[in-house]
Amino acid sequence: MSSLISQRRSLTRERLIRAALPVFAEKGVAAASVEEICEAAGFTRGAFYSNFESKDDLCIALLEWQCEQSLADVRSTVDSLVLTDDPPFDVLARRALEMFTASQWSDRAWVLAEAELRLYAAREDSLRAAYREFEDRTLAAFADIIVEALAPRGYRLVLPAVEAIAILAGAYQHGVLESVIRDEDTGERTTDQLVLLLSALVAPAREDA
């Protein structure tokens, strides 16, 4: 019985998280009310507060939920990148980034919600520390995967790994938001920019290579 309750609770929690995304995207985090999120999810305020302490708690849960999917996509991309040739790094980078960007959320709602969450964290003392801690953990997790992916292929990052990933993440976030503004497909333009940037951030592992 307890496992059934736990599963039901998990589904309720995810449904509230999913419902918050378009509400945050269209209204902004500050203007979005708990009632609106509950209505979008088809739940009562009681269901909300049995899963989240506050709207700030929901914000972090939404970021964690999306981050888990992105990390899984990065790992899948690395595992799927089986090479039968020895391409130049820019070709290798393009293959990997095309696979990754194709798997990511690039719809308008997520792009706007992510931007709103970041702005909200910048404005609100109540969320800033939790957001900063989440961001630091996320960058470190992505950095570990990228370093482990580069080393067997004979490459290294020319900057500290977390700093390099922060630069790439900033470029990706800018690229997808710019695509929404321009009413363009996210993939090609953003991938081109990321290939150029990643190529500048990576060097052969051996100095004489």
Rank of each mutant, 00 (worst) to 15 (best):
A203E: 03
Q193G: 15
L177C: 07
P160L: 02
R156H: 09
A161Y: 00
V176K: 06
R156K: 15
E163W: 09
R153V: 12
Y172A: 14
D183S: 15
S179Q: 07
V202P: 09
H174Q: 03
V162M: 02
V158H: 01
L168P: 13
G170I: 05
L196Y: 10
R153S: 10
G175W: 00
G175F: 00
A169C: 09
A203S: 07
S179R: 04
V202T: 10
D192S: 12
A164E: 06
L196I: 09
A205Q: 13
A164M: 07
A200Q: 04
S179L: 02
L159M: 10
I165H: 04
D183Y: 13
L201V: 12
A203G: 03
A169S: 15
P160T: 06
A151H: 11
R156Y: 02
E163R: 03
T186E: 12
L168M: 13
P152D: 13
R182M: 00
G175T: 02
A200H: 02
L157K: 04
G187L: 14
Y155A: 09
A166S: 15
G170E: 06
I167Y: 03
L198T: 08
L198C: 03
L196H: 08
P160I: 02
A169N: 15
T186Y: 04
Y155W: 10
G154R: 11
I181W: 02
V162L: 03
A171R: 06
L201E: 14
V202A: 01
G170N: 04
E188F: 15
V202K: 01
E184K: 04
Y155S: 10
A171P: 08
I181Q: 03
V176G: 08
I165L: 10
R153P: 08
V180K: 00
A166W: 06
V162K: 00
Q193V: 12
L159N: 09
A200S: 11
G154T: 11
V195F: 07
L197A: 07
R189S: 03
P152M: 14
R182E: 01
P160H: 01
G187Q: 14
L157V: 12
V180L: 02
Y172F: 15
L198Y: 02
E188P: 11
P152E: 13
V195N: 07
T186H: 11
D192V: 04
L194D: 10
L157W: 08
L196A: 13
E188A: 15
Y155I: 07
V195L: 04
E184I: 01
V158K: 01
L159Q: 09
H174I: 01
R182A: 07
D185H: 09
A166I: 08
I165V: 15
A171F: 05
D183F: 15
A164I: 03
L159A: 05
I167R: 01
I181V: 13
A203M: 00
L157T: 11
A164R: 01
A164L: 06
G170Y: 03
A151D: 09
L177S: 13
S199E: 03
A171H: 06
G175Y: 01
E188Q: 15
T191S: 12
Y172M: 14
I165S: 06
V162P: 08
L197N: 06
Y172T: 13
P204N: 08
P160K: 00
T186K: 08
G154L: 14
L177M: 10
V202F: 02
A171L: 09
G187E: 13
L194R: 11
A151M: 08
V176N: 03
V176W: 00
L177Q: 11
T190I: 08
I181Y: 03
S199Y: 01
V195Q: 05
D185K: 04
Q193P: 14
L177E: 11
A169D: 14
